[in-house]
Design a protein around this nucleic acid. Structure first.
Lengths: 195, 195
DNA sequence: AGATAAACGATCAGATCTGTATCGTTAAAT
DNA sequence: ATTTAACGATACAGATCTGATCGTTTATCT
């Protein structure tokens, strides 16, 4: 394994364990055991456990947002349909039997101090996802794109929280129906092009 | 302090610390230091830390659901208004500068195994809150009270998750507006009494 | 007031945690 | 081919965690 491969492998393993067991409950010893790497190696790649967590969250943040765009954009060209498609993307995650809730919300839940770098990484991810919804809501020519984006965001967060407990995919479909209903009655700009 | 007072005091302190710092990050030593009680005393009242967590969650579960009813029922007599009033109740929590997200969701997030007693306690709380929404939705004579209750629940979960990150009360108001909009377009039973 | 029980404070055991150090070996780069 | 850097394995340091075990002291209750 090349250097960069080891780093990626460590991040993969760490992300899986953080998702399955949480951050505090996942010790460095377990991460190295599961990734088959020496402790020295882990600490050569990451100075502290917190840096490993941050690197893992940053990678997942990037991956998730790219994957969302890659899923949504070929799926529909109409921006409203794209907003609704984000719930289908969510449903894919929920159908994984290993779904254990949003890893960013969990990260914030285990590092509650708003000044904590882990909390701020989670915060940043949420901000960027919201920005994507705003982009779509703007393209859909809603009269108040920020508010629409906030609504979509709130529905997604709700779906993730409910699915974390109920452990099934229904919340994604329910949230999508709600979004559909809300978007249908929301004001559009008079400049909206005819469908 | 009488015996029951000590127990209550321990639960108060533990709940505060779990909320401020999380479950794993809150050690037994910190709990006894902050409550000014000897370690022997804590372990006389609770066999293990997990039992302390469970007792704390059970007490909060009971308190929260009673407080919700006590807030909602004098607030409005119309069941639809009562459903909407649950968001005002939520807003009170969010306005606390110490709001750090739903302690039950955080508990589930730190104890992700569905067989874990802490996870199950969180699950139970969520189930009971949902049951209350169903009770209100049924009283409001919605055609599909379970679905309505699920929607209200999803909005509340979304508001809590968003507020955990943004740390302000706006998500409660936003969720309330969304609920209002959704309820207004939801089917009611033809037996619904005239207002 | 005397008996009973629970409180305190301190210590200790044993496990586990993060992070460091050592050392021999392997693999990549020049 | 030789140098260099990173790897693996193990042990260790120091802190912290849960939980148990001491006397000793303070309440509570009859």
């Amino acid at each position: 394994m090349r250097r960069s491969e080891i780093r990626d492998h460590l991040l993969d393993t760490a992300l899986r364990l953080f998702n399955e067991r949480g951050y505090h409950a996942t010790g460095v010893d377990l991460i190295i055991a599961e990734s088959g790497v020496a402790k020295t190696t882990l600490y050569r790649h990451f100075e502290t456990k917190e840096e490993l967590i941050l690197a893992a969250l940053e990678r997942r943040d990037e991956e998730d947002r790219v994957a969302l765009r890659v899923f949504v954009e070929p799926h529909a060209s109409d921006p409203v349909e794209r907003l609704l498609a984000t719930f289908d993307f969510l449903e894919i995650d929920f159908n994984d039997r290993q779904y254990r809730g949003c890893i960013f919300l969990s990260a914030a839940g285990e590092h509650k101090d708003p000044a904590n770098p882990v909390f701020r990484a989670a915060e940043m991810h949420k901000r960027l996802v919201l920005a994507y919804f705003e982009e779509l809501a703007h393209a859909a020519r809603f009269a108040e794109p920020k508010q629409i984006a906030g609504e979509i965001n709130l529905l997604q967060e709700g779906a993730m929280a409910v699915a974390q407990i109920t452990r099934n995919a229904e919340p994604a479909r329910q949230a999508k129906r709600m979004a559909s209903q809300l978007l249908a009655t929301s004001a559009r700009s008079p400049l909206a092009p005819a469908a």
